[in-house]
Design a protein around this nucleic acid. Structure first.
Lengths: 227, 227
DNA sequence: TCGACTTTGTGTACGTCATATACTCGCGCT
DNA sequence: AGCGCGAGTATATGACGTACACAAAGTCGA
């Protein structure tokens, strides 16, 4: 359960392609089964025993192919991420909006990815491909080279965490609003309170507009910067 | 380990202030001990047994005060968050930058907060106070009321996830760079590759500039919007 | 063709975890 | 004086990750 077990080993595993022929079990198969489980029942359902069981093997059999659970999860995350959207050839602004859109969809399709610990910087092939796919249109915006990475990180961070919020929101329903209303007194939270009475917080669980609006702010900022 | 056990109960616990007198153990004490543990050894070290042990009690004793571990963790998160920075009275731009600065510091001081599952929307008193403290200067920027919440969410999401990246980065050292270099071929990742050879990715573990730069882009966008 | 080595999967076992259930004690009230 | 209830304990259960020792089955050199 610790962090690594040699980060280098994990790295190699992420980029490994060939599978030894003489074995019914394979890294790819294990990872796929684990992803299916996570998609269906959440990350909590992914235990070595469950994954192995799903494949008709014992838990320990997995350890012949994967060094440990942390590594398996890392593989799952990169694999499930898949390929970034193809370039549309449109202007960089739409390209970036497309990217965010695709990332959003993919996070909502695999919400468990938002709960796995990463190594911070991108390391897997797919993770890197997504990063590249965001950098490319950004580079076309005329942004100075030394700020490219910073901006890409900022954008992808915002997308990711908004998706996290969107997927973590509990159905709650009316309960949450009522409880909040009791607690948000104008003396303690004046801005929030006025927003609440003015009805600006009606569409609460609706995180998506925050992404679009914020992203457009950034793109506006970018055009100012570079024009 | 499930999500809630009645979200309403958790909510009440978050806002509870009075403690029953006739008991050596208290919710406050438990939460404090758990926070100390998490600060010192990470969230992984926080088990009911460890926390209780630290206080000189058995694990089960905690259940007289806290419904379960998930609730304890929720309490820890809100408690550790503390109060937002006081208003400086400066212009809204600096106010927002101050806010981000303080949030950043606090995440780095309690990195485990970035790994606890929240309920999506803010619910605890401190969480709400931070949100309010961001909304206030934003409201002064002249931003339309209906976009206030969206913008605040966007900003706080970016800060949070950048902090997550910053704290998750493994010391790695030279290893990571070498391994990456082997794998980032210009044919597959042209933009990344050119950034790497141009040395623009030298300062890798340095996430903080991404926050400042991105934030300023947003603030620029805001001024364009509202002027 | 034979035997040794290697690779793959199994069986069992350990320590840790969250938490249910059933108890014991002692304080505060009547 | 005694009784009830609230606080803390003892013990147990089932799930977890994974170490270790083994077994079977395939590969390869002689």
């Amino acid at each position: 359960m610790s962090a690594d077990k040699s980060a280098a080993a994990t790295f190699r595993l992420l980029w490994e392609t060939k599978e030894s022929a003489r074995s019914s079990l394979s890294v790819g198969g294990i990872v796929e089964a684990a992803i299916a489980l996570a998609d269906a029942e959440g990350l909590g359902a992914v235990s070595m025993q469950r994954v192995a069981g799903e494949l008709g093997y014992t838990a320990m059999a997995l350890y012949r192919h994967v060094p440990g659970k942390d590594q398996l999860v890392a593989l799952m995350a990169d694999r499930a991420q898949g390929n970034p959207p193809v370039e549309s050839g449109k202007e960089w602004r739409t390209e970036i909006l497309n990217w965010a859109d695709a990332a959003w969809d993919f996070y909502l399709a695999h919400p468990w990815i938002l709960r796995v610990a990463t190594t911070g910087a991108p390391t897997g092939p797919n993770e890197l491909a997504w990063f590249e796919a965001l950098l490319r249109p950004l580079a076309q915006s005329g942004l100075a080279t030394e700020n490219l990475v910073a901006t890409a990180m900022f954008i992808s961070s915002a997308v990711r965490d908004l998706a996290r919020i969107a997927t973590e929101i509990v159905p709650s329903g009316s309960d949450y609003g009522n409880l909040l209303a009791q607690v948000i007194r104008p003396d303690r939270f004046p801005t929030l309170a006025s927003l609440m009475t003015s009805g600006a917080m009606e569409d609460d669980g609706d995180v998506r507009p925050a992404l679009d609006f914020g992203l457009n702010l950034i793109l506006d900022g970018l055009t100012t910067h570079t024009s």
